[in-house]
Design a binder for these strands. Sequence first.
RNA 1: UGGCCUAUGGUGUAACUGGCUAACACAUCUGUUUUUGGUACAGAAGAGUCUAGGUUCGAAACCUAGUAGGCCAACCA
Length: 669
Amino acid sequence: MSEETKSLNFIEHIIEEDLANGLSKDKLRFRFPPEPNGYLHIGHTKAIGISFGLGEKYNAPVNLRFDDTNPAKEEQEYVDAIKKDVAWLGYQWENELYSSDYFQQLYDWAVQLIKDGKAYVDSQSSEAMAEQKGTPTQPGVDGPYRNRSVEENLDLFERMKNGEFEEGAHILRAKIDMQHPNMLMRDPIMYRVLKKHHHRTGNDWCIYPMYDWTHGESDYIEQVSHSLCSLEFKPHRELYNWFKEHIYNYASDMLPMLPKQREFARLNLSYTIMSKRKLLKLVEEGIVSGWDDPRMPTISGLRRRGYTPNSIRKFIEKVGVAKRENVIDVSLLEFCIREDLNKTANRVMAVLDPIKVVITNYPEDKEEWLEAENNQEDDSAGYRKVPFSREVYIERDDFKEEAGNKYFRLKLGGEVRLKNAYIIKANDVVKDQNGAILEVHCTYDEDTSKKVKGTLHWVSIKHAIIAEIREYDRLFSHESPDSDKDKDFMEFINPKSLTIKTGYLEPSLATVEVGEQFQFQRLGYFNVDDDSTPEKLVFNKTVGLRDSWAKQKPKPQNNQNQNKAKPQQQKRSAISVIQQFGKKYTNLSEEKQLKVKSEIQELAKDVSYDDLEPLFGTAVKKAGTRIAVLIALKELLKNGLERNDAINEFIEKAKADKNEVLVAEASEI
RNA sequence: UGGCCUAUGGUGUAACUGGCUAACACAUCUGUUUUUGGUACAGAAGAGUCUAGGUUCGAAACCUAGUAGGCCAACCA
């Protein structure tokens, strides 16, 4: 592998630094801590890839820990789905753990905190507490129960645990600082009364610990060295540290490692959403068929769609890790799956929008089984036979009565190759009363050695088998559906995200199994959907092939988000071209500088003083721009421009500059 | 009326931690090859690093201020 020079991301830098500062490599330990309240999506894959990737890189253990502290939302179904998805991605966890395993330890530590005066029971309504908490811009105030005695706190807390109080009657809070600028430090809640059945602890507990208290201490119990999470937890770090430093006093002999929380920017994918809550809404409202609908950005959806673990891991690798908000273009994901499938998927022929071709000089009852290569990218893939006969389907798009010479496909009087078969020539069309084409009549030529521009895929009509083909488009029409301030993401739903077609397939596909993947030649990659049966085949389109022909056609309306720079370039004024030259000027060889200089002089004829003056203020460090401006200015002066104070000042400043070229130009005046 | 974080081609990430003409990938555009308008290969265009100051022989990197964006007021995680 050529990994030696691969640059590190900021988390790897931190780890390398810790290692350099004496952290022993065998102390490295990571964790992936999902809450089992929904399915994993492509965004989680980034978190999974970071922590498990680090585990692989440093040969360190990675725990799969379910953060199951809220029995109201969490279910075993999600635990199972999450385990399945992580394993499918190809990662191995060291231990399968649950925060709920630590409930007793957490409780004991909470009691110690109470004894040390670091936690207290509050008995107000949530409204009252919210009011005392202040706002991000206003400090909070202490509540009336803040200074209860240790004995009273201990008594109440124990009775909370014993189920003596109803939900909402009391909570346990850490005693930190109600005026703290970080709202999370304003006496955060540690425990609430919740008389709910927990998927693992059953009815053992009537109180459940909150995230901040549980998560950090779970890391600490597991002796995680680096606890990696997404950016929105950055403000929690202060509290994470507060808890861990206090608990360290109680347990440092058994648990010497203090975990370090660090935060990275989560993944956003264009034209989709990542919020579990919003994805759930799509499921509940029937916009999609379920969490594993192939249009969903969930791991199960991507799997069903035909994405491979390999392609997803590659994608995560390419996306990188940093701290700024980002929106990844789906085209990168598509690139990754194409790259993978190109090497592994067998090629087959299928026609999804058929038009009938009759080969008039081919005998009516003749049929031939022709040899076809399965995958030219894989020598071990072998060959198969495909049947040919007098009547075949080709794609409706692949025929035009008349077309220009940039159209390589079949047109009247033109020749085209049928993949793996003969070269045919179109002679005639048969139409119905409305002028719609029913048949194309062709003649074939046994000589296949001829050079023809186009090659089409096809299927023999009498041998064709039928399948349902599901084609998908993006789920949302907006690049970033949940970032619009005025509109709800539901307003951007693309009503045409699913198209169902009937496909005509070569007969070798009669025996496919669920999950098998193919390239339908010239169309894209398809896999056999979970719904497929031998009686009724169902295929999903995973992704289309790159199509540089399709791109040609819609030229004028190619107004997307691409290449905003281009329109600017079309009408570039002389002054902007001069600026452009200026930017590069100091980097050019002397010879090229002369050439550019004369071009600037030429351009200067179209420049007015008003264009030039604003550039006198160009920053000192942009010497090139100032040189270009100076050259242009000299031309204007030569052509009769009167000198003024601004000009003089600019020239004097140039003479005093550090850049020799600039000084030389200025001195020539 | 506060705190914290971020800012590098269209997008995402780099830049050996202050030192060569700011690199790589995707996207875009050209060619070549091709029984897939795919793949592969070759090449092009596109950023002086948000702005303004400063420190320095030297700044994308350090400092100050500004601007823009994000996060923070759930008994959620």
